[in-house]
Design a protein around this nucleic acid. Sequence first.
DNA 1: CCTAACGTTCAA
DNA 2: TTGAACGTTAGG
Length: 289
Amino acid sequence: MSASGGSMEGSRAVEDEEAQDSCCGDEDTSPVVERRNRSGIISAPLSKSLKRSRALSQYIATCSAAAVASVANANRLAQSSMVATGVKAHPTASQHRSQVGYAKLDRGALMSGLLDSPSGLHLAQAAELLRRAGMLLPVSDPSNVSVGGDMEAVSASDSLGSVMDFPLFGNGGVGGSFPYHPGLFIMTPAGVFLADGALSHVTGASEHQQTQNEISSAISANGKKKRKRCGLCPPCRRRINCEQCSSCRNRKTGHQICKFRKCEELKKKPAGGLEKVMLPTGAPFRWFP
DNA sequence: CCTAACGTTCAA
DNA sequence: TTGAACGTTAGG
């Protein structure tokens, strides 16, 4: 009772202090009164925007639009570095795509690009997608350095398409090559993950280590067991319950996580078992020839 | 034992 | 098709 009840009260307590939209805003500059439950989940309204009953899609769309604007500069730099690194950058139409399309390249698009290819995954395509993801890194913006921080985990990075969706991909910096060996990736029905230890090696973030542990256990469970949150998508990285959605309001009876914290991967229908990526030849895809 | 949360079922 | 409710599982 203390946990959920306190959460509810907490949401009222901080309601008026949520002066900024948590999405794409720099709410980290404003003091946020945190109420945490036993699991460390902060129970507070996400934003004023939620009070206006914006649909999640609108919520995300707004953020994405803002993200496009905010990432535009980074993309321009990335593009120039594309030329510098010998990557052919097409003018006009392609240029527009690289500025807007790349910014819009969210995790879902990336994953679908990786996994939904009907003819299987071409390594070159995968490499290209991954490389693009790496290029989404804004020019070392300190405000975006938030991995592992105890913030409302998505904040500025909440916007889809932000590099924070791929915290690891930013290591190479703008124009930097994607520094990780493809063998470090685990392809699962839930998405593509770094292999065990890779995340901690890269970031040292205990949160990611935990995530990897969960992923590992989920994979070993192999199938019908409860799937676990990916821990990487914006909803997973969000730490506060909105207390406004039906799931939050009906927590007692609904037994559901806040809609804004519902893992993107868990929203998808589970594909039975580990999915093998098949090549057009019928042979299973291998990262290494 | 308690809480959080995923999966399933069913009604709207 | 979506959301609410419930059963169940997992973790502390």
